[in-house]
């Protein structure tokens, strides 16, 4: 027999999957940044994720009320709430990056340097892994993601100190900003990894 709560969880997972895809898309779009156009599209994605987050939240409340979940179910319900927020934040940071570039009237390929480019790829693969870990409830992947987050943190710090002494004008500020937002996105991936571990093990 399928438990009633599982039917509701299937719905919830559908929402989370859609959010993951959209969040990935937003990062992808950053890599092929085009002035004006991209910022607008990223805003649309971010708004959509915000709505989906609300939807997930309502569904989770309904699950809590209807089925009074316990143990893994309860932890998943709680984590899904957090994860939906994290995914929304990721799309929002992507939009923030676009907005920063846009307002400085820069395009990404004009001034992006190798370090930033590299980091974008890293964060993208990190988000990919995060989504995979979420779908599979994979403990090892979650731990790997947390390690990757530390690497990104370190890279950001190094870049930050480099930027302090390097005077490169507009572009260097844009790059630093992008690095900063990427670091935040990686943090949210790590939060999701934490939630995955919480669902699996019952502790963080």
């Amino acid at each position: 027999m399928v438990r009633l709560i599982d039917l509701a969880f299937q719905k919830l997972e559908l929402i989370l999957n859609e959010m993951s895809e959209e969040a990935l898309k937003s990062l992808d779009m950053l890599a092929y940044f085009k002035k004006h156009h991209t910022a607008k599209e990223l805003k649309e994605i971010s708004d959509k994720l915000r709505k989906l987050k609300e939807e997930a939240g309502e569904l989770i409340l309904e699950i809590l009320v209807r089925y009074q979940p316990m143990a893994t179910d309860l932890r998943f319900a709680k984590s899904a709430m957090e994860i939906s927020y994290d995914l929304y934040r990721i799309s929002r940071y992507s939009y923030d990056i676009a907005l920063a570039l846009d307002e400085a009237n820069l395009s990404l390929d004009e001034c992006i340097d190798a370090d930033v480019q590299n980091n974008i790829e890293k964060v993208k693969s990190m988000l990919n892994l995060t989504i995979k870990a979420m779908l599979e409830r994979n403990k090892d992947l979650a731990i790997e993601i947390k390690n990757m987050d530390q690497v990104i943190d370190k890279a950001y710090k190094e870049y930050f100190y480099k930027a302090l002494v390097y005077k490169g004008g507009k572009c260097s500020i844009a790059n630093l900003l992008i690095m900063r937002y990427l670091e935040r996105i990686a943090d949210h991936c790590a939060y999701i990894a934490d939630e995955i571990l919480f669902v699996i093990k019952g502790s963080k």
Binding site: P69, A71, L74, R75
Partner: peptide, 17 residues
């Protein structure tokens, strides 16, 4: 017990499996 049961049987019982 209700949020982090250690035993798989407890998990199954409280989650209605």
């Amino acid at each position: 017990i209700f949020t982090y049961p250690k035993n798989e049987l407890t998990e199954k019982y409280v989650a209605g499996r």
